[in-house]
Amino acid sequence: MNEHGLLHLSVQFAHYALVIMAIVYTFRIRWILGFKAGKERQASTGTPGRTDPKKGYMYSLANIMMPWAMESTRKKFFLYVQFVIFHLGVVAAIVQTFTLPFATKLHQHPIGGIAFTVIIGLAFLVGVYRIFRRIFDKYIRAISSPDDHFSLWLLTVWFFFGTLAAGYPVDKMTAIGMDGNLAMIIFFFMTAFFLLYVPFSKISHYLYYPFTRFYFGKSMGHRGVFPIVRKNA
């Protein structure tokens, strides 16, 4: 099979993997919904009128965009910044699995192509930093499973090829019939593997995120704790 055929195959694989991932995710969501949600019978606590369950879960869900809201993100702002970059990189890399074959003009645009390259490239650097942190920070190492390490390596390598793919000379790309190169072929095959692996790994955490933050926020809103009131020195 020639380079063109391989590229075509890798793109097809990636999109089939996406469908499989969606199916497995459906089972995962059914699994968690199969557990009954705990109920709080008590009347609300806290200063009357200050908050309620809705304010609580809205605050909780938006928490991730408010680095000042939690002491952990406030004090470790660098970790927060690299978290943002890493996840923007994930989004950009996933988006480009569609835009590379189906919206090539976006990548042909000087800003578009560079933006993808920079975002995914920075995410790659964060990935490298995270690999070192997971290996050398004794707190993180102590809680890391093989899946934690592998998932991080997988994403970092994927970012690496994603960066190369994003920066592929745009004049060579013509929709699905574009010329391929090794980086792009590897990127799409890795995407396929990544999508198949995700539902079975810690990377699927974002599936649970809405559940945990919604219920915790709802409870803390009902109890008058969220949104957190903070008085500085």
Partner: peptide, 11 residues
């Protein structure tokens, strides 16, 4: 196990 606890354990 309830949904809140499972979420916390899985997430």
């Amino acid at each position: 196990l309830n949904r809140q606890v499972v979420g916390s354990l899985a997430a």
